[in-house]
Write a protein that binds this DNA or RNA. Structure first.
Lengths: 186, 186
DNA sequence: ATCGTCATGTAACGTGTTACATGATTGT
DNA sequence: ACAATCATGTAACACGTTACATGACGAT
């Protein structure tokens, strides 16, 4: 049972609170950088598929004079599928492919799997980035002469992106560590 | 005539040198972060489409005992289409959507449109990033309390990515400025 | 003789994009 | 009465993914 990124995003959001297709669309429109399409042509069919697979269930709820909204919530199978996805180990290949899916997973991890899992995620990610960034630098150094200035610069831009991710990872680890030390609350 | 990103990537690469589908695939496999799929099922049909649109022309060339390779090169219509794409102004919306297409365009700009165009591109990009980064920071500040820790951190990661891009942009501008001052060569 | 790599394709499939359609509700 | 927004869909289409297929060439 392999789902698209959009489907996982929907599962994660529905885990946070039952929502209608319209609600979910608004989230995608309003939230910067979670740039999934806000088009109904993507979201409604995706919800339909998830319902057919038994991962979510929708029911029409006309709350307080508003027009009918179909609220979706996760089934137990849906929660299980979401957890399975979130528990996937942070792999080298995934890091190479890009940060998109990894950051989406991180955004849901703490809520669904707890703080310890989120911390583990960050540590695994940090490890992989500490391997990948030098790998990229090395590639740039050895290939430098075969590239145009623009090519070099474009690659440099990508490497800096990963370096920035690495910086963020250590920052995030510190944030988590501090929060777990200081207050046990919430 | 709107093409997919992959198609533009192929046009840009073919402008640099005539290549076979296999050559192009190798580039995607070997180059980190230009992560377009290396699958023949994407590249060969894309080349076919480009040929049907008259943007490239392929001819079989059996060079020196090797087995037959179909080498593609740009037609004048292809060059025109590539230039049209590269000349698109750097727009706010494009920056919000992500850096992917912009960096691909930058990688080809100098070669096809010349150094001045590349410099202009960078300056436009810098301007948009100087607008967008504070916008994102503001969003984070105002929404902070409504978000989970993971949500905040995920957003922070994205913002840092854009900040890193901004840093790179100024760096790249400096590189270009220096090169155009120092040596006129190549 | 056989295996790996070079090289080009094809066919089924899923899914996102774009654009259109519909009707209810709220505000003026 | 009318427009704007809420809310859900649908249909055509393009494109990439996955997996399979084919055959030539070079090496052992």
């Amino acid at each position: 049972m392999s789902l698209s990124l959009l489907s996982y995003a929907l599962l994660g959001l529905l885990e946070q609170q039952p929502s209608s297709g319209y609600d979910l669309r608004k989230i995608f429109v309003q939230t910067p950088m979670w740039s999934y399409s806000d088009s109904p042509g993507a979201i409604y069919p995706a919800l339909e598929r998830l319902e057919k697979s038994g991962l979510i269930r929708g029911r029409v709820e006309a709350s307080a004079g508003l027009r009918q909204r179909k609220l979706f919530r996760l089934t137990s199978a849906g929660t299980a599928e979401l957890k399975k996805w979130l528990r996937k180990p942070v792999s080298r290949e995934e890091v190479v492919r890009g940060m998109g899916e990894l950051m989406l997973r991180f955004a849901f991890t703490e809520r669904v799997l707890g703080g310890a899992a989120a911390m583990q995620f960050l540590k695994d990610l940090e490890k992989e980035l500490r391997w990948y960034v030098p790998t990229l630098r090395e590639f740039l150094d050895t290939q430098e002469e075969a590239m145009t200035i623009s090519g070099r610069l474009a690659l440099e831009s990508g490497i800096r992106g990963y370096e920035s991710q690495l910086g963020w990872t250590t920052y995030a680890i510190a944030m988590y560590a501090e929060r777990n030390k200081g207050g046990t609350s919430s």
